[in-house]
Design a protein around this nucleic acid. Structure first.
Ligand SMILES: [Mn+2]
Ligand SMILES: [Mn+2]
Ligand SMILES: [Zn+2]
Ligand SMILES: [Zn+2]
Lengths: 129, 129
DNA sequence: TGATGTAACGATAATCGTTATCATGCTCAA
DNA sequence: TTGAGCATGATAACGATTATCGTTACATCA
């Protein structure tokens, strides 16, 4: 078991207090802004520790890893390529069919990540026709 | 339109001649081994150019981008976390349900990537019970 | 033919997210 | 009280990718 130090607790609190998907740098900056500065290495180690304990979840985007609260049911993500907005969705049938597809290939699944890219509703409208 | 230089043609040939998923370094090494050395920057630029023309496809894995032939129908990937083997699969219903999920959120899809992680058939057996 | 413009090349520096190193600080069981 | 062991933070190192820049290949035009 790991130790829930003040730094790790603070990271966990920030993540749990919002529905955002945070990267390491944003968390360090948020803590700094809140007067509780933290070393960037400590952020990375804390995130890894919290995730290994299942206290937070992550998604690996092209450039960086982003973390979110684990207090939500499993879901996947749509990322707006215009504004960066991340929309969540879950689809039970898709999940089931993934299991079936894996079984068909002899794969034992430990995880998956489905990311869809496109324009969110707002950016769609801003774009016009 | 871009120019299909000897370097880019060679990259394209290597990718099309196999079913592998290549990273930039592997391609540079393969060309070097074949007696046609190439600058690593040229590999990256060539890959970007070829992909923008739709001549090759790519998948973004955690650490690096991998490229494959575009002479295949769209498919998604299972990655073995033990041996690195990449298995391809396609599931028409999953694709359709993705479109439905996007529409429901007001997203206009431009792409998606579904990657499943786990143990491939071989590594499953090697593991035993 | 030869000047000139444009795009690609290749070596290498720079960037960026992440991990490793290491000296220092805390904490808790003996 | 003490010391083993884990956490922290500054910073170096790393790996993939991109930027820079001088050089080269090639096409166009005087
Ligand atoms: Mn999410
Ligand atoms: Mn493939
Ligand atoms: Zn948007
Ligand atoms: Zn395997």
């Amino acid at each position: 078991m790991m130790k829930l130090t003040p730094q790790r607790q603070a990271i966990l609190d920030i993540i749990n207090a919002s529905h955002r998907h945070w990267d390491a740098d944003e968390l360090a900056r948020a803590m700094s802004d809140a007067g509780q500065s933290i070393g960037i290495a400590t952020v990375y180690r804390g995130l890894a520790a919290l995730e290994s304990q299942g206290l937070i979840d992550s998604i690996q985007l092209a450039d960086k890893k982003r973390y979110e609260s684990a207090d939500k049911a499993h879901h996947d993500h749509m990322v707006c390529t215009e504004c960066g907005h991340i929309e969540e969705f879950s689809h039970q049938t898709i999940e089931q069919l993934q299991l079936a597809a894996a079984e068909e290939k002899g794969f034992t699944l430990t995880g998956h990540q489905l990311v869809m890219f496109g324009l969110c509703r707002q950016c769609n409208q801003a774009q016009g026709t």
